[in-house]
Amino acid sequence: MTYRIGKVDVNALRGVNLAVPPGEFISIMGPSGCGKSTLLHILGGLLQPSAGRVLVDGEDLAAMGDAARTDMRRRKIGFVFQRFNLFPALTAEGNLNVAERIHGDGAQKMTSEERREVLRLLKLENKMHHKPLELSGGEQQRVAIARAIVNRPAIILADEPTGNLDSENSAIVLEMLQKLNQEFKQTIVMITHNPEAAAIANRTVEMRDGMIINQGSRA
């Protein structure tokens, strides 16, 4: 993946080869600037790679147009960011509703029971009428996770989801991700700087200078 800044090319990723089988939970570690976020954005179809192939369920994202990539993201991918990225003017409930509305597809939607269960696991039952500014960072991230999974995406892409959280909240978030992976068989790619966080994944991929230097091995 090459970014172009004026006349200078920045090779954010070079020759990355990564396969994630369905249902696997991998973590990606590496120094800042090594291309982790770029990789995640490409996997989620937010970025178009300058070369190479990105296969999601056998479909090549790199060969798709913007609309098709957006549609694939809508159907199959849930993003969780370090900065939470909630709609600031909407309540937690409102944030979930917008995600459902964008997704639109009723078949995949959680039943209200499943939704209640998820909110219970995330300890959010009493927070749904609060706006992001009225919530702690940990609560905001839990809402963001709830929002990422209301449409049951096959794949969850998390970019330093615990980067802004204290250890207690980090534990809740990680536990939730693990549960999603184990119970709902969701495929998870999580970027993290925290070795303890990385340890809950099935394997840890190490990156440096736009390359994967260690594919890790299944625990």
Binding site: G44, T70, R73, R74, R75, I77, F79, L86, I102, H103
Partner: peptide, 13 residues
């Protein structure tokens, strides 16, 4: 930012 969030959620144009 909000528009970026909508896009990350898969909102079409």
């Amino acid at each position: 930012r909000e528009i970026g969030i909508m896009k990350s959620l898969g909102a079409p144009k």
